[in-house]
Amino acid sequence: MKLRVYAIAYLIFLYAPIILLPIFAFNDATIIAFPLSGFTTEWFAELTQNRALHAAVQNSLIIAVCTAVFATILGLCAARAGAMSDFPGKKGITGFIMLPLVLPEIIVAVALLVILRQVLGLSLGNWTIIMAHVLICTPFSIAILNGAFGALDPSMEEAALDLGESRWSAFRLVTLPLVMPGIISSMLISFTISLDEFIIAFFLTGSNPTMPVYIWGLLRFPKSLPVIMALGTILVALSVILLTIAEIFRRRGVRRAGGTDTGGFL
């Protein structure tokens, strides 16, 4: 089958760079080039001693966790509203909220930089990055949660109301458990996006860089490249694990709500 061969070749193209990561991360040479010279775990050991990197990772984790929580809260509101009655202008409003999905990130970055620095005169810090990341992660959260709410039979919540629950307790007892896998999936995806985001973070980062901004700095020093390879290997492994969990939860969510899987995060 020609198409299958093509699709597999395409997958190899997609994975080519990532496969190189572990190869060079364990390669006993400071230049990133073939031929390989030998096995070492030295680069990973170096990672554990880099104070600046630890601080950057810590920053990124704080930002990513906050982003995941806030983006998912906003996504929950929008997705729940999406599952309710239409009103005039609803499509336009939803489209506007989803806009960051197609907006070039540099536009978001400069717009926020201008308003925060030049107009409001605020100093940059982790919170400015969180605000921007929430903005760009909310559309992803909405897309995931729309799937969870869309698969939900609207009679479920009505049934709970009919059986004597209040609006809030019906949501808490029925809807929330049924969309919980979607919520977890949304948080993991937002976390991953935020952890990895560079273009905006580079503009809005304060005196303490985030992990991608720190990596960007390292890229200029050939000596530090093997360490980046080691770091990249860990990040890829982490991403794969998180995404696998997110995917499992997303599927479980669709199944639990009684729908059929239509695949994909988007």
Binding site: D153, S155, M156, E158, A159, D162, V174, P177, G258
Partner: peptide, 11 residues
């Protein structure tokens, strides 16, 4: 009410 879809809570 008995709903058309029955709305049996799947969880």
């Amino acid at each position: 009410m008995v709903f058309q879809s029955y709305a049996i809570f799947p969880h």
